[in-house]
C-alpha cells in the first residue's frame, strides 16, 4: 500500500503528470490511465488546461502550411455537404467541380483506352453484352488521389432481364490494414445521409448489385466517397472511419 500523500504532494504530482501529458512525453499505458482519470477530475483537467495554455505558443511560431482543398471537401462530405454549400461562393464551387469533372473526363478517356488495350478480357465481356442488347454505362466516376486514379466506377442501369449493376475496376492497390475495408458511398445531392454502394476491391474488378432504390438515388447524386471501415464494411450503415477520397459522379445522358 503506497503512503498517503498530503495535499501539496498530490497537487504537485498532478501538475507534473499534466505537464508531461501536454508535452507528450507521458506515453503508453500511463497516458491512457491519465486520460481515464482526466474525465472525472476537475483539478486534473484544470492542470492540463493550464499547461496547454502555457505551451501552445511554441507551435504558434511554426509557419502555417495550406492543406490541399480535398481535406475540406472530405470534411464537408462527412458533416453533410448540403449544409456547408452556403458558405462557399457558389461560383467558386461550381467552377472547381467543373474543373475536376473536365480533368476526370480526360483521365477516363485515356484510362478507358488503357484498360481496353491492357485487359482484353474486359473488352470481350462488354462486347458480348453489346451483342445481346445495347448496354452503356450511364454513370461514371474515377476515384483518384493527388497523383493518379485508384478505382474506375461504371454504373449500368440494366435493361430487359439484365439487372442494374455497378462495375468497379481497381487500377492500383492502396495499402490498407488487413482488418479494414474500403467502402463506397453515394453522397445524395439532397443532403440526406450517405448510402452504401458496397465494398471496393483492393485489386482486380468487382460487380456491385444496384437495387432499384439505390439506382434512383444514384441518379440524383453527384458525388461519391470512399471510407475506411472495419473489414466487411461499416457496422452502422453510415461511414464510421476516415474518408480519404471523394469523387464527382458524372451522368452520361
Amino acid at each position: 500500500m503506497p503512503q498517503l500523500m498530503n495535499y501539496h504532494q498530490h497537487a504537485e504530482l498532478i501538475d507534473r503528470l499534466a505537464a508531461e501529458y501536454v508535452l507528450g512525453t507521458l506515453r503508453g499505458r500511463a497516458r491512457r490511465r491519465f486520460e481515464k482519470l482526466l474525465s472525472g477530475s476537475i483539478p486534473m483537467r484544470r492542470a492540463v488546461q493550464s499547461w496547454e495554455q502555457r505551451l501552445f505558443w511554441m507551435s504558434a511560431s511554426l509557419k502555417p502550411i495550406e492543406p490541399p482543398p480535398r481535406v475540406w471537401m472530405q470534411i464537408a462530405a462527412r458533416i453533410g455537404g448540403a449544409k456547408t454549400a452556403a458558405t462557399t461562393p457558389a461560383a467558386t464551387t461550381s467552377h472547381l467541380w467543373q474543373a475536376i469533372a473536365a480533368s476526370i473526363a480526360g483521365i477516363a478517356l485515356t484510362l478507358g483506352i488503357l484498360l481496353a488495350t491492357r485487359q482484353p478480357e474486359v473488352k470481350v465481356r462488354v462486347l458480348t453484352q453489346v451483342e445481346v442488347q445495347p448496354v452503356q454505362a450511364a454513370h461514371t466516376a474515377i476515384v483518384a488521389d493527388a497523383t493518379a486514379p485508384i478505382w474506375v466506377l461504371n454504373a449500368y442501369p440494366g435493361a430487359g432481364t439484365a439487372a442494374a449493376e455497378l462495375r468497379v475496376q481497381a487500377v492500383r492497390e492502396i495499402p490498407l490494414a488487413d482488418n479494414k475495408s474500403f467502402e463506397l458511398w453515394m453522397l445524395p445531392d439532397s443532403g440526406t445521409p450517405p448510402v452504401s454502394l458496397g465494398l471496393l476491391p483492393r485489386s482486380g474488378s468487382a460487380v456491385l448489385p444496384l437495387t432499384a432504390e439505390k439506382l434512383r438515388t444514384l441518379i440524383s447524386t453527384s458525388k461519391v466517397a470512399v471510407s475506411i471501415e472495419p473489414a466487411g464494411g461499416s457496422p452502422t450503415g453510415a461511414p464510421t472511419g476516415a474518408i480519404p477520397y471523394v469523387a464527382p459522379l458524372l451522368h452520361i445522358a
Binding site: 502555417p64 502550411i65 475540406w72 470534411i75 456547408t84 452556403a86 458558405t87 462557399t88
Partner: peptide, 14 residues
C-alpha cells in the same frame, strides 16, 4: 456547418 468552414479557413494551415 458554415462556422466550421470559416474556422477551418482560418486555422487549418496552422
Amino acid at each position: 456547418a458554415s462556422a466550421l468552414h470559416t474556422l477551418y479557413d482560418q486555422v487549418a494551415p496552422q
